[in-house]
């Protein structure tokens, strides 16, 4: 389990002459395997917070600690390695590479991590079978339904056995039935793989099953339970 902690985390953007505070002095902590949901309206700062926690962005002020290491002291290369080995990302719009097949999309992360081709192939097949896409291995993203694309994205996120999965509105583009399946999948991963899931959502079903629930409004985070 990877410990994540933020201290007075703030992110501001300049838009023309004005300054927008996307994340405002957020203190957030995950120190055990949980299914954590962050709920908020569009523009409340959910994605920005997740990008900061996932080391995809740098804060304007405040600190992010991963395993008690101050990430502001890490080089870009070290931050990339943390993303590669310890964090899996699931995006609202899946962000699969369109020229690669489902299998290759999953293998890519492992390939970047330096795993052998045999290991990559076996694990990618297993992961895709686990998300119900055993018969869609060689299909390119354009040949998959949106639900299937999100499943491939989840398989890719799991490729390097991350301790944390960060999912940014993973059901935002999906119909209710597919959304339910995806939530179930993420919940299974959390429970069976002992992987922390941090999820930004509007979905009420997620709110119901989350171990920890945060709400975010105007960049301010509040722990609900």
């Amino acid at each position: 389990m990877m410990k994540i902690k933020t201290v007075d985390l703030t992110k501001t953007y300049r838009v023309g002459p004005s300054r927008i505070i996307a994340v405002d002095k957020v203190n957030f902590e995950v120190n055990k395997v949980t299914f954590t949901a962050i709920v908020g309206l569009s523009g409340s700062g959910k994605s920005t917070l997740l990008n900061l926690i996932g080391l995809n962005d740098c804060p304007t002020s405040g600190k992010i600690f991963i395993e008690n290491t101050d990430t502001s002291l890490l080089s870009d290369r070290e931050r990339r390695k943390i993303r590669l080995f310890h964090i899996g990302f699931v995006f609202q719009t899946f962000n699969l590479l369109p020229t690669l097949s489902a299998l290759e999309n999953v293998e890519l992360s492992m390939s970047l991590a330096g795993k052998s081709q045999k290991e990559q192939r076996e694990k990618a097949v297993r992961l895709l079978e686990n998300v119900g896409l055993g018969d869609r291995l060689s299909h390119r993203p354009r040949e998959l339904s949106i639900g299937e694309m999100q499943r491939v994205a989840i398989a890719r996120a799991l490729a390097n056995d991350p301790e944390v999965i960060i999912a940014d509105e993973p059901t935002g583009e999906l119909d209710s039935k597919t959304a339910k399946e995806i939530i179930g999948l993420l919940f299974d991963i959390n429970r069976n793989h002992k992987t922390t899931v941090i999820i930004a959502t509007h979905d009420e079903k997620i709110v119901e099953i989350a171990d920890m629930l945060y709400t975010i409004r105007d960049g301010k985070l509040k722990l609900e339970h």
Binding site: N56, R80, K81, R83, L84, F85, F89, F91, N95, L97
Partner: peptide, 16 residues
């Protein structure tokens, strides 16, 4: 850009 951003997000080295 989205593809390269995805590569960045999943931790692909700059050299890649």
């Amino acid at each position: 850009r989205r593809d390269f951003a995805t590569l960045d997000a999943i931790g692909a080295p700059l050299s890649y």
